[in-house]
């Protein structure tokens, strides 16, 4: 019985790589996702994922499906859009969602245009849906590197980010930290999306950010417990998605995201912090 759940990873190197790669993506991306859900920016990730496309498309035109090329292209496009959107949100009356939407649409249109210049768009399937079952050494190093940077930057930014979320005026009054937290967060979002698109593709990568964070809210109350819970959920999702993909011969990216989706729906129903069942069953209350 054990072997059904373990042997794919002991018998096949590509499965090991897939597991290691996806867990690395989780370590970086999940904390970013938690702050996105708490800042009501859940759909921002989607926007940014589209914003990355023209960078990847240009890189593809110039260098083909080279890992470094796609990464650098995606990073540049993502960071430019993030910086412009952040700047507009801080200096004009437009809110962050509107300014981001404007720039990502421009970016996306540019991306589609560039892709159509290159007549075969089949290869760019890789960018949209990732390549988790074919990670080579360079790709693994890249994912691990991005996860490492992301974890450290997140640890450093954690406190100002929390303060910024609760009371945005506080850091504005007391110096530069507000600016650093704002752009630092967008930076984290972009590098994790780029890591995510190698593994799961631009669209599925958002699933790893948002679904564990959303599910964890139904189990945990405080931020630290939410963090740990959602990391565990994301690990579980990657593992079970890969197992499903292995035995039923379905694409790994969607399988991972669907596994996370199942966890999310189960949490929504049965989570003891505001899940449907508990909410409707528990009518007792304390005396004081």
């Amino acid at each position: 019985m054990d072997s059904i759940f373990v042997s794919p990873f002991t018998d096949y190197v590509f499965m090991q790589r897939a597991l290691i790669g996806s867990l690395a993506v989780c370590l970086g991306a999940v904390p970013v996702g938690i702050f996105m859900t708490l800042r009501r920016m859940s759909l921002t990730g989607d926007a940014m994922a589209h914003a990355i496309l023209p960078g990847a498309a240009f890189a593809y035109l110039l260098s083909g499906l080279s890992l470094i090329g796609l990464t650098v292209g995606g990073l540049i496009a993502g960071l430019v859009v993030a910086a412009l959107a952040g700047w507009v949100a801080r200096t004009t009356q437009l809110h962050e969602d509107t300014s981001l939407a404007s720039f990502y649409l421009i970016s996306l249109a540019l991306g589609v245009l560039v892709i159509s210049l290159e007549h075969s768009n089949v290869d760019l399937f890789h960018v949209l849906f990732g390549n988790i079952l074919a990670l080579d050494n360079t790709a693994l190093w890249l994912l691990a590197g991005i996860a490492t940077i992301s974890v450290f930057v997140m640890a450093w930014l954690y406190r100002p980010l929390v303060i910024e979320c609760v009371d945005s005026s506080f850091l504005l009054v007391s110096g530069r930290a507000s600016l650093i937290a704002h752009y630092g967060f967008l930076f984290l979002l972009v590098i994790n999306l780029v890591a995510g698109f190698h593994a799961l593709g631009t669209l599925m990568a958002i699933g790893i950010m948002i679904l564990p964070a959303a599910a964890a809210r139904f189990w945990a109350k405080t931020l630290d417990v939410i963090l740990i819970t959602s990391i565990l959920i994301s690990f579980f999702g990657c593992y079970s998605g890969l197992i499903l993909s292995f035995y039923f011969d379905v694409p790994a990216g969607p399988a991972i995201v669907l596994s996370l989706g199942v966890v999310y729906i189960a949490s929504l129903m049965f989570g003891y912090n505001g899940g449907f069942v508990v909410k409707n069953r528990e009518k007792r209350h304390l005396v004081g």
Binding site: V162, I163, F170, T222
Partner: peptide
Amino acid sequence: LDKSFPITVFELVFTGLW
């Protein structure tokens, strides 16, 4: 303020030491 953010009174107060 975003009152729905999941932090405790202690955590809110200690940001005064920023």
